[in-house]
């Protein structure tokens, strides 16, 4: 009974956090305190928060290390752009188009998750990390050679160059190889982002609290014991992995449709690592922490602007110092008193 209460409490804490963020931003908008640079960062913040939640499902709840989550973001983002761009003339209402784009992005990312997940989830530990890393690089590489255009006959696709598409002169390019998607209609909005974030939170929290979620955590804590108890290890790992991939895909759509151009190299290894940093700094398996870390660390480079050239250097030092400090025995002992119960639950 107590366990259930705790789950519900964290869930409300997370919804409350999103609500506070929403209200704070609305107040800042209304009173005009909002700077333009911060306003431009709202959607990226939400996208990265969703990415952090998605990766936390894999790293924290399922206990697998993924170094290629930006790959799923990329798959989602470019699917979303293609869908939104080709429906531009047939569906006028942009919220509806955004919804369809997000669903399509999540779906293709989920398919990518299944394709990668089925063979790979048999491996464990660092090997899964390498394969996901390799997957992320493959996606980046393929997207770099992808040319997609649309004309009255429909979509054209090529891995060679723009001329081999054979488009009508009135056709429009959507993806342009290494240049990525250009001329995107910006249809992501702050409110749409908040709604997507809330939906993702509902999905993750219900999954984690459910029978399936307990099975996933049991496998994380002791795979052999879980297997001996009759749990289908690959199935439950796959559920966590594919859900995470789909969520990452939706975050990608939200992110891409906020810019007029998005290049494939935006979703490279560094982005995967960035999201992993959010998850680890926020506390592995801790959704609230991941959300806060993602938001703070997305804004931090902007806030460090006064250091100018030194800001990424400062960022790196902050990262190292935080990691060493949080793993220091003395600091740990301080927190251990507070979180004794939780530490036990998280193993």
């Amino acid at each position: 009974m107590k366990k259930l209460d705790k789950n519900a409490k964290t869930a409300f804490l997370n919804y409350g956090l999103v609500a506070v963020f929403f209200v704070a931003v609305e107040i800042m908008m209304a009173t005009g305190v909002m700077t333009n640079s911060f306003k431009g960062q709202l959607i990226p913040i939400i996208s990265y928060v969703i990415m952090a939640l998605a990766l936390n499902l894999v790293v924290g709840i399922s206990g697998e290390l993924s170094l290629g989550h930006a790959g799923f973001m990329s798959v989602g983002a470019f699917t979303g752009v293609i869908v939104a761009s080709s429906l531009q003339d047939s569906i006028g209402a942009s919220p509806l188009r955004l919804l369809i784009a997000i669903l399509a992005g999540a779906l293709t990312a989920a398919i990518a998750g299944i394709v990668i997940g089925i063979p790979v989830l048999r491996l464990g530990g660092d090997y899964l990390a390498i394969v996901t890393l390799a997957f992320g690089e493959i996606i980046k590489n393929v997207m770099n050679c992808m040319y997609v255009g649309v004309d009255s006959k429909g979509l054209h696709m090529s891995l060679m160059d723009a001329n081999s598409l054979g488009m009508e002169p009135t056709g429009r390019m959507i993806l342009n190889g290494p240049m990525g998607a250009t001329g995107i209609k910006k249809i992501s909005g702050f409110i749409a982002g908040i709604i997507l974030l809330l939906i993702v939170l509902v999905i993750i929290q219900n999954l984690v609290g459910s029978r399936t979620g307990r099975a996933i955590k049991a496998i994380r804590d002791n795979r052999i014991a879980a297997e001996a108890s009759g749990l289908n290890v690959t199935k439950y790992r796959l559920i966590a992995f594919v859900t995470s991939a789909a969520i990452a895909g939706s975050a990608g759509v939200l992110y891409a449709l906020n810019y007029s151009t998005v290049a494939p190299k935006k979703f490279d290894f560094n982005t995967s690592i960035l999201v992993l940093v959010f998850v680890v700094l926020g506390g592995i398996g801790n959704m609230t922490g991941a959300m806060i870390a993602a938001a703070v660390l997305t804004v931090l480079p902007e806030m460090l602007r006064q250091f100018q050239d030194y800001r990424m250097l400062v960022y790196a030092i902050v990262l190292i110092v935080v990691m060493i400090a949080t793993n220091n025995e003395k600091v740990k002992a301080l927190f251990a008193k507070k979180e004794k119960g939780e530490a036990k639950a998280n193993g």
Partner: peptide, 23 residues
């Protein structure tokens, strides 16, 4: 300092060092 920490913590620190050297 991270000799007894989780492998993920060490990994993130290594990434921090990598950022540091690059910048």
């Amino acid at each position: 300092p991270l000799r007894n920490a989780t492998s993920l913590a060490v990994l993130i620190t290594a990434i921090g060092v990598s950022y540091f050297l690059q910048n």
